[in-house]
């Protein structure tokens, strides 16, 4: 496992520190011994397939569920024992969880009112955050009268309004269409990241994780697989799972030989004149900017990603650069240093 160091800050205790966090229910382990650090202003994505423990982690951080073991430190304070309402943690939910019976402004006001903030200060802060998110026009609308993107912005506004010490986002884009998601990524980064509070962002979409986060933590079955920058994870995956989970189209895993297994990314395979693996073209998907080729070879089926305008014969030979090889232990799945 490669543990990348967080961004260096002057105060080593600043930010979020997760120590040995676990959650078990009735003999089932949802999360085991998670250790992570997130620096102030850093955005960490929790990435993994459904049921991997990423939402569990988020709910433990928020205090919505109780941890079986472990500590959560925020700027050096142990917040593990605090109730959800006392942690000053904001969360953007997958469904946005806007109160359907309240207007946008009242949705934002409820939490402040409960805390006993005076009407004047409340109004000012709400107006400021509405302005920031360009929601001022919509302040009197009900959630049902908003588009998906607008609802998401209201949920963000509610999270930012509280000046939280930690921001959590649970698949905040999964209810938006693909185009909007792409457009919103820079906006979300601008609003959330680089401030004073750490941001933890849960998603199952690797593109989103790579686009949003400074670092990505990959989880599987409640166990942390690897944490690092997108590039580290892609180029030096800790194991076969991370290698296969990141990257689309998925990595080619050749049949194991003598306890080890070779992985080759589709874009790293290239046609060569001689000396490569003989392969036969089966099918072609033309994507406009690229094309994906499905080939049959003696080393199994292979996927090959090449430029869109490349014309290839039916029968060809495939080669690759040795430094693009990714070797795995075929039993444990751990990545090996070399062949």
């Amino acid at each position: 496992m490669i543990e990348a160091m967080p961004v260096i800050t002057t105060n080593p205790a600043a930010g979020l520190r997760i120590e040995g966090l676990s959650r078990h229910i009735g003999g089932r382990s949802l999360l085991s011994d998670l250790n992570l650090q997130v620096a102030p202003g850093e955005c960490l994505a929790l990435l993994g397939p459904s049921g991997c423990g990423k939402t569990t982690t988020l709910r433990l951080l928020a205090g919505l569920d109780a941890a079986s073991a472990g500590r959560i430190l925020l700027d050096g304070d142990d917040i593990s024992r605090l109730s959800a309402g006392d942690r000053r943690v904001a969360m953007v939910f997958q469904s946005y969880a806007l109160y359907p019976h309240l207007s946008v402004a009242d949705n934002l006001a409820l939490g402040l009112r409960i805390r006993g903030m005076g009407a004047r200060e409340r109004e000012e802060r709400i107006a400021a955050v509405l302005e920031l998110l360009q929601l001022s026009e919509l302040r009197l609308r009900r959630p049902a009268q908003l588009s998906g993107g607008q609802r998401q912005r209201v949920a963000l506004a509610r999270a930012l309004l509280r000046q939280p010490r930690l921001v959590l986002l649970d698949e905040p884009m999964s209810n938006l269409d693909a185009q909007l998601r792409e457009e919103l990524r820079p906006e979300l980064r601008r609003l959330l990241c680089g401030g004073e509070q750490p941001v933890v962002y849960v998603t199952h979409d690797q593109q989103e994780a790579m686009g949003m986060a400074d670092r990505i933590a990959v989880l599987r079955d409640g166990h942390l697989q690897q944490v690092g920058s997108a590039r580290e994870l892609y180029e030096r995956p800790a194991n076969r799972f991370v290698a296969a989970f990141l990257g689309r189209p998925a990595i080619n895993l050749l049949p194991p030989e003598a306890g080890r297994q070779l992985g080759l990314r589709p874009e790293h395979l290239q046609p060569v004149a001689s000396g490569g693996i003989p392969a036969r073209l089966q099918r072609r998907e033309w994507w406009g900017n690229q094309q994906l080729l499905w080939l049959e070879s003696a080393r199994g089926d292979l996927r090959l990603l090449v430029a869109a305008d490349l014309e290839l014969p039916e029968d060809l030979q495939l080669g690759w650069r040795p430094d693009h090889e990714l070797w795995f232990d075929s039993h444990s799945g751990e990545r090996l240093a070399g062949p």
Binding site: D86, A97, I114
Partner: peptide, 29 residues
């Protein structure tokens, strides 16, 4: 009622009577 609604209210520091009064019961009207 979506469970996330009550979670959101808990995060904002509403205790059970307040969650009932401000969030849950209005929706259950």
């Amino acid at each position: 009622l979506p469970a996330e609604l009550e979670d959101a209210a808990r995060l904002e520091g509403l205790n059970l009577p307040r969650r009932l009064r401000h969030v849950l019961l209005p929706l259950l009207a």
